[in-house]
Structure formats: structure tokens, C-alpha cells
Nucleic acid binder design. Structure first.
Lengths: 250, 250
DNA sequence: TCGCTTCTCAAATTATCGCTTGAGTAGTGG
DNA sequence: CCACTACTCAAGCGATAATTTGAGAAGCGA
């Protein structure tokens, strides 16, 4: 008879994934990393954690095989370990949406009511862009994420800078804003602000990761800041060994 | 600017699902429940937990919206709250399989090497059953799970009873055994034993939940024991209110 | 009603987790 | 070599979690 202890160990392995996802902060990290590689400090800043704490969370995610990292100079850049990880995160949030009534209430509290702000579907936007429609597409995520990948014709105006850079948004064209996904407040806020200023603005359904996962075209590169300064990214950085090492138990 | 605290709360909700799956014991419980309703004691017995402990784990799963329960006399029967929960569990194990090298090693240690025991695919089995092939299909799960649902032509011979009931297995027909899924050792053990006794035996790929999820036909009913005794199940039990109540925070 | 079964709850123990603080390490540039 | 940046590690604290034990509660059946 097969050992009861071995069975327990096997299911404990499955639980490692669950354990990695048992902290809201770690899920936030995954959501950020779905938008592109980030340094530890970048993650810490986006999620609102101390550096040491973010470092620890990232290590836990790496031990669960969900993210991997590589060194680039003094930076260590983390990213999702595989596309399946992103798919799993979408499966998790979809399940939570269906099974936890609380999610709906909080989404409304965080994102705001989406009534009247009907989103542009990916298909519609892709079709209109392909047919040469005169749309102005804004990527309102932090510049680093824009650089890691963005819609083909998009312009990067991080939400933080939107108010200062309103003059760069044409008033006579229809504006479409997008951000990190369905649980990101950047695009809804941008749209609300633009509308209040008299622009014709809507948001794209979901965000860039979903666009990319749907197989639609994504461009990379474009003005970026690497640290907290503003210096442009070196065009080609050396790419040292991957530190993702297949995680095994001690 | 949308509140940072609200965002944290939202992601903490997603983490509730992860938290529910952060214990190997709870995942084992889900795997058992995927094979049909179970009383608390039934779950405790299958997973190897004390009654009070199993009760607690089931409550946690219910608070995460993954299982629901109903009272039936003095029993309280738990089940998966929705088909999506089962699908999520398959997604979890698939991800763990891809990302955690440890899983492969443990599966081999627990299930045994499957080399040379090529499984019958669902399609092949369904086709052969439909065309009237003379197969003998054995359900080697506990009788309670057989009663909750089984392959149309299957015979229930729980693994525990297989040795005593070998005379009920025809030696001149091809035998196909199945159990709970890819991480259940019942069918592989049954096949190994049958082969050692000279039977032509193979196992079905995966188990009953996967068969059902593939949309293939499932029959319910058939000799069952409800408690630990052996008395037959009453043909129709009253079905009181569902205790699954959409879970919200306190 | 009483006794029985099945399950839940409360309390207590032990283990684990999340986070902070402060020291330590790895790579970069002068 | 030194100073600096980016990150990791170790210690420690308070908060949660897992499990056991023993005491209830809820629904039979007689």
C-alpha cells in the first residue's frame, strides 16, 4: 500500500502554490510583474512594501516557481516564470469573482462604478487601429511598464503625469486609455479626469497583459526611466544567467 | 486618488482563495469532494484527519466559497460549491506539475512508475463501450463515491475489497480500472495486483472527475454504505436547505 | 422524554507568517 | 582600494494558523 506520508507530501507540493498566493501582497506583485520585469525596488514601490519585505515576498514566489529573476548590473529583475503563471492568476481572480461576493463590492469601491463608462473591447480597438481610425491611445501605466511592452500605437502618459501633460492629448480625437488590467484603477481615473476636461475618452477592457495574452500585437521599447531618476534605458543590456533554478525542497 | 487600503483589501480577497489552498490537507479534501458529496466524518476518514480538524478545514473551505454543505438528518454533507472549483484545482495541479520539479518525483514515489502501464484514454474507452466491446470496468474507489457517480457500465469493487472479490473479475475479459484522478493510487494498485494474478488489466487515464468534466456520461446510484456500517442508502432522502451562503467578510 | 450519532465550538498549544530593523553581500564606478 | 547602490540575510516580535481536547448543539429513534 502506497505510503500515506508520501501522498501528504505530494499534496503539500500543490499547497506551495496556494501558499504563494495566500498573501494579497504577493498577488499584487504578480499583477505588477504581469506588466513586465521589475527590480526589487520597483516592485516594492508599486506594491507599497519595504525593500526587505518585497525581497522576501519575491523569494517566496520564486521558491514556488511562479517568478524568476536575473541580475542586470546591481539590479535584480524579477518576472513571471512562465505564461501559465499569468493564466493561473486570471483563473484565480475569475474564481474569486464568482465565489466571493465581497470582491464585487471592493472592485466598485476601488475602481468606481463602471456604469456609463463602457469599455472598448480588444476586438473593436484592434479593428479600428488596423483600419486606420484616428484614435489616440494612452498607456497610463508607469513608464517602465510601457517600455516593457505596449499597444502598437500607444503613447505613454503615466497617470501621475496626466494633469501636467494634458496639452499632449488632442481634444478632437477619441481617446482610449488602458492600464494593468481589470483591477487597476489607473485607466478609469484617467478616463474620469479626461471626461471632466471635455475629452471624448473611454478605456480599453482589461489591460495590457490581457491584450498580449489574446495574441494581439505588442511593441517594446520607448522612453523609460530605470531607477527613480529619469535617465533613458541603455538600448542593449547584458543578459546574465537566469537565477530561476527549478525549485526543490531543501 | 483611489485608496491604497481598498486595493489591499481587494487583493486580500483574492488571497482568501490562495489561503484556502495553502494547506495540502485542504487540497486533499477538494480532491475527495470532486468525487462526490461526503459527510464530515467521511472526509476525515479519507484524508486522515481528526473529526474536529476536518470540520475546521471544511469550514475554511466554505468561507472561501469553494465548498458548500447541506444537512441530511444528523449528517452534514459537503460538496464542491461549483464546477469552476474543480476546474481551478486541475489548473493548480497542472501549474504545480510544470513549475515544481518535486511533484514529478513524488508522483513516482506515490503512484509508482507508470511506464509500461499505458492508460486507456477516455475517448478510447468511451468508443469501445459504445460499440459494445466486451470490457470489464472496475471502479476501485470507496463505495460511497461510486454511488455518487460512476461510469455507465462500471462495477464497484473498492480497492480494499479487491483481493477478497477477485472471483468476481472475469479472467477472459479485458479489465479497465479507474479511481479519483491522476494523483490517486487506487487504480494503479488495482491494476498492478490484477496483472500479478494474470489478468489483462489497464487503467483509465485520470479518474472519474475528469471523465465527468469531459462531458462523458455518468450514472448515479448503486449499492452504498452511508456510515461505517453497510446498510443500503434510503432511495430518496429529503433535501433541506443549502448552507453554502455567499461568503462575506465579518 | 432519553440516549445516540454527528457535527461544531472554545480553549490551549505549538508552529508558521508578515513585517521591521540592522547588519552583511554583490556588483559598479571613481 | 573606497564609496555607493541594490539587494539579501538574520533576529525578533506580534499576529495567524493547525491541531488536539473536551464540552456543547442539533437532529434522529424509541
Amino acid at each position: 500500500m502506497a505510503d500515506h506520508k508520501v501522498k501528504a507530501e505530494l499534496f503539500d507540493q500543490f499547497a506551495r502554490i496556494g501558499q504563494a498566493l495566500s498573501s494579497g501582497r504577493r498577488i499584487e506583485i504578480l499583477d505588477v510583474l504581469a506588466n513586465g520585469e521589475r527590480s526589487v525596488e520597483g516592485v516594492a514601490e508599486q506594491v507599497g512594501l519595504s525593500l526587505a519585505n518585497a525581497s522576501r515576498h519575491l523569494q517566496l514566489l520564486r521558491e514556488a516557481g511562479l517568478v524568476s529573476s536575473r541580475r542586470e548590473g546591481t539590479f535584480i529583475r524579477y518576472r513571471l516564470a512562465a505564461p501559465e503563471v499569468y493564466e493561473f492568476w486570471t483563473a484565480l481572480r475569475s474564481l474569486a469573482n464568482k465565489r466571493l461576493a465581497e470582491v464585487e463590492r471592493l472592485v466598485e469601491a476601488y475602481i468606481g462604478s463602471l456604469d456609463g463608462l463602457e469599455a472598448v473591447t480588444r476586438e473593436e480597438l484592434y479593428g479600428r487601429l488596423s483600419s486606420g481610425d484616428d484614435l489616440f491611445v494612452i498607456d497610463v501605466r508607469p513608464g517602465e511598464e510601457f517600455a516593457a511592452g505596449h499597444l502598437p500605437s500607444a503613447v505613454s502618459i503615466p497617470l501621475e503625469e496626466l494633469k501636467k501633460r494634458l496639452d499632449q492629448v488632442p481634444k478632437d480625437r477619441e481617446v482610449v486609455a488602458y492600464c494593468r488590467g481589470p483591477y487597476c484603477a489607473f485607466a478609469p481615473e484617467a478616463v474620469a479626469h479626461l471626461r471632466a476636461q471635455g475629452y471624448r475618452a473611454r478605456q480599453l477592457e482589461d489591460g495590457l497583459p490581457e491584450w498580449a495574452a489574446a495574441g494581439l500585437p505588442v511593441e517594446a521599447g520607448g522612453g523609460v526611466r530605470t531607477g527613480r531618476g529619469g535617465r533613458p534605458k541603455r538600448p542593449a543590456a547584458k543578459v546574465p544567467a537566469d537565477q530561476s533554478r527549478p525549485p526543490n525542497n531543501p
